[in-house]
Amino acid sequence: MASEKKKASIFTRLSDTNLLLIITIVIFVLMYLGAVLLQGGGFTKPQTFFNILNANAALILTSCGMSIVMITGGIDISVGGVVALVSMSCAVYLDHHNGNVFVSILIALAIGLAYGVVQGFLVAYLDIQPFIVSLAGMFFARGMTTIVNSSPFNVENEAFVALKNTRINVPGLGSVNKKGVYVPAYVEIGVVVALLAVVFLFFLLQYTKLGRSFYAVGGNKQSALMLGINVKRTKFLSHLICSLLAGIAGYVYFLHVGSGSPSHASGMEMNAIASSIIGGTMLTGGVGNIIGTLFGVLSLSTIQNIVASAGLDEAWWTGITIAAMLCIFLIIQSVVMAQKKRALKTN
């Protein structure tokens, strides 16, 4: 009885954010260890891990944006569409108009910014449900992508290809390949951008007034207003940041695949939401952590890798596993929070 009570008090003393973060990290570590034990080989090489990062840098960026919107109590399902629109626009600009790489980056940022301003305005100042706004945003972006160019193609622009192929070696890590040559582990530029964004956003959320306002608004909008926070502006900024990150993610994605296609990043919004939730962000708002989101992305992509290397490479398995994982995490969240509430009530 006494031990039970103590357990309950530890359980209740942890903040919601930290509690969910710990669950996430534990699950990721267990999963990666499981992968190493089950499949061995590949998963012990550092490059396998870095390849996960390379392939998912864009997802990390969109998930971070998604987390911020979700912490503030909203949602943005247009991010996948924005990524597709950005990569198609940049591809067309670079390839058909032989454009400048630097300008193409500006295009990506501008698209993200425009999305953020419009969606943020509709959600924050006109008080329209974020889901509806971003659903329309998603369809608009997908539609616009096909209007810009309806068929997929590879970008041949030299400056761009050079940038795309830039590899940054990770010091101290590498492996010896079959021929016995030491190959250093590498990451792409996108990964660096993504990790910088993670660090920056972590700092933003933890240590700035704006960051804490996101949590306050997500926790209780009415209270936040009474505490003197500009709720509308906070909501607006959350959407602005999210869409801007989606714009950057679009470029990072483009840099990774090197092509434009209407079907790019299909379902990415779903993966971003799933990563955020797995990373311990609550759909109800007010709870979440960028580091958790990073681990959420890693968990998600690790499980995809496991599924793929287990021979279940039919396309549908990915969708089903992600959905199943999301479902499990949603239920865990719902149950954990209900338990916690009950524990508090009886105290």
């Binding site: 949590y215 209780n220 209270s223």
Partner: peptide, 30 residues
């Protein structure tokens, strides 16, 4: 003002609830 019904954010810490919305500058010194 202190209202009858509690108008604080339950998901933040006590300290944050005491200071949020009234600190100057963008960075919060935890």
């Amino acid at each position: 003002t202190v209202y009858q019904e509690i108008t604080l954010c339950p998901n933040l810490t006590v300290a944050e609830n005491m200071y949020i919305g009234r600190t100057k500058g963008t960075i919060q010194h935890w």
